Every structure is written in structure tokens, then in C-alpha cells.
Simulated scan of single mutants.
Amino acid sequence: MKDIVLPQDAWQDVEPGTEALVEEWLVKAGDTVDAGQAVASVVVVKANHDVLAPAAGVIEQILVAAEDTFKPGQTLAVLRVAA
């Protein structure tokens, strides 16, 4: 299993304690994804970022719902990596 998180570089120049917003999930649990595929659209301090799948596999579970906030390093979803 691999955690899907927003890369640290998206948090550069952001004040400590800032949270981001999952604007929209582009996949749902059970969907198969390719490595590097956008799986969610998030907003960090008025800047949109796509969250990419770190590997090919199946979205096992979405942990942060659309319109919910999250903190740096927080796992957004869990990916079952393809064999």
C-alpha cells in the first residue's frame, strides 16, 4: 500500500498551521489509476494543485473527503499498488 499525499513542495512559502482544501476527487475508491495520474484537485492558499498517484494501482480508500481540509503530510487516500 502507498499513501497519497500532497508533495512537500506545494507547501513551500506557506505559513505554519495553514491547511489546504480538497476541492474535488477525480477518482473514487475502487478506481484503477496510472502512476502520475491526477487523482484530486486541492487548493493551498488560493493556488490549485493536482495530487498525482505515486504509482499504478487501485484507490483503496479516500481518507479526506472533497470540501474537507487537511494538513501538510496528511494522507489523503490509500493506493493498492499494482503487482
Rank of each mutant, 00 (worst) to 15 (best):
I62G: 02
V51R: 01
K71P: 02
L26F: 05
V43C: 08
G57D: 06
A77P: 11
V14C: 15
V43E: 12
L76V: 07
D9Y: 11
P54I: 04
L79W: 04
L21F: 03
G36M: 01
V22W: 00
D68R: 11
D31N: 12
K71R: 09
A40Q: 01
P7M: 12
D50L: 05
V27K: 10
F70L: 05
I59W: 08
G30Y: 00
D68S: 12
D13V: 08
E67Y: 02
K28P: 06
L63T: 07
T75W: 03
G17T: 00
I4P: 09
A47Q: 15
H49K: 07
A82W: 08
A10V: 14
V5R: 15
E60Q: 15
L6T: 12
A53F: 10
V14A: 13
V43N: 10
A55M: 03
A40I: 02
G57Y: 00
V51F: 05
E15P: 14
I4S: 05
V33F: 01
K46M: 13
G73A: 06
A53D: 04
I62Q: 02
P7T: 07
V27P: 01
V51P: 07
V58R: 07
A53G: 03
V42E: 00
A53T: 02
D31G: 02
W11S: 05
E60S: 08
V22S: 04
T32P: 10
P16I: 09
W11T: 09
V58A: 04
A66V: 02
T75Q: 07
D3N: 13
K71I: 08
P16C: 06
M1H: 03
E60M: 10
W11H: 14
Q12W: 13
D34Q: 09
E15W: 12
V64S: 05
N48H: 11
V78K: 08
K71G: 04
V64T: 05
P7E: 07
Q8S: 14
V43L: 15
V39R: 08
V64W: 00
S41R: 13
A47T: 14
P54R: 10
E67Q: 09
G17N: 03
E24R: 09
D50S: 12
P16R: 07
V43H: 13
I59K: 08
A55D: 10
L6N: 11
M1C: 01
A10P: 10
I4R: 09
V44K: 07
Q12S: 12
A40N: 02
E19A: 13
